[in-house]
Design a protein around this nucleic acid. Structure first.
Lengths: 138, 138
DNA sequence: TTTCATTATGCTTTTTTTTGAATAACGGCA
DNA sequence: TGCCGTTATTCAAAAAAAAGCATAATGAAA
């Protein structure tokens, strides 16, 4: 069996190169992995990309700049924001077209809460994955 | 796919259409969702599709028939089996080319164990998701 | 030795997904 | 009023993923 590193194992390769570590890696051949997201009535509502997008919007005050910052097309970023806003009582993002600088957009309180909710969901998920990785052997 | 969109959000639409269910759905606007898999050293090792493939192989004794049964191309099914076998000490699937009927293939004990391992992993995951769906409100 | 359905594999085509270009509309502000 | 950079939207192009096609190789059994 070969021992090339796969893409998502970059963390391992970047870790301190002491002997103990290598011994551990050698015996751990498998890793429980996964992705989570939250669906609304109309389909996808929140996921990793969308949360990062919300954070960037909060930081930069513009959908276009946020998209650019995370190398996502504006087309898609705008679509994401639209889908998110359509599925909540109160919108997560407020857009203002036109005006000073062409327009601004900002997160609402609901938007900030959504970010936190997903992050805590994901933290629990990562713990779940780690606990399962322990017992994998084939 | 960049942010994990649900390929299988058919579950809600396919559920029993009684009034009680609809009432529940109406008040529950969000659902925690996700997918899990197991990575090996060379990348993807086990996931939903691969487990179903293993089961069909066990049932039908042929990669080609298994692929056909689940409407997957033989090309891909064969690739999956190859990747799985390459990443374990003992292969999950034994292939015999030629002979009566052109060849047969069967699961090993390791293959059967792999199916069970993933299924129990997924059962735990679904419970995790359900427990989280409870507390979602935006 | 011929037959047969399968495994094994490369290459082409199709389908799906994502991105990019192009353009209209907007509205505070100098 | 004209300017500016943004939001808003369509549609074509490109990239990625999956499927399909063609064909060689195999080896037990008739």
């Amino acid at each position: 069996m070969k021992h090339g590193l796969s893409k998502d194992e970059a963390t391992m390769a970047d870790s301190p190169k002491n002997l103990y570590f290598y011994t551990m890696v050698k015996t751990k051949n498998f890793k429980a992995n996964g992705r989570i997201w939250i669906d609304g009535k109309e389909g996808a509502f929140l996921g990793y990309g969308r949360v990062e997008l919300l954070e960037k919007i909060h930081e930069l005050g513009s959908i276009r700049q946020a998209a650019q910052a995370m190398k996502m097309s504006y087309r898609q970023a705008w679509e994401f924001v639209k889908q998110m806003n359509e599925q909540t009582e109160d919108p997560l993002v407020l857009m203002n077209v036109g005006g000073k600088g062409g327009g601004q957009t900002q997160l609402t309180e609901a938007g900030l809460r959504a970010i936190e909710a997903f992050k805590s969901f994901n933290t629990a998920f990562q713990k779940f994955l780690d606990s399962y990785s322990e017992q994998l052997h084939f």
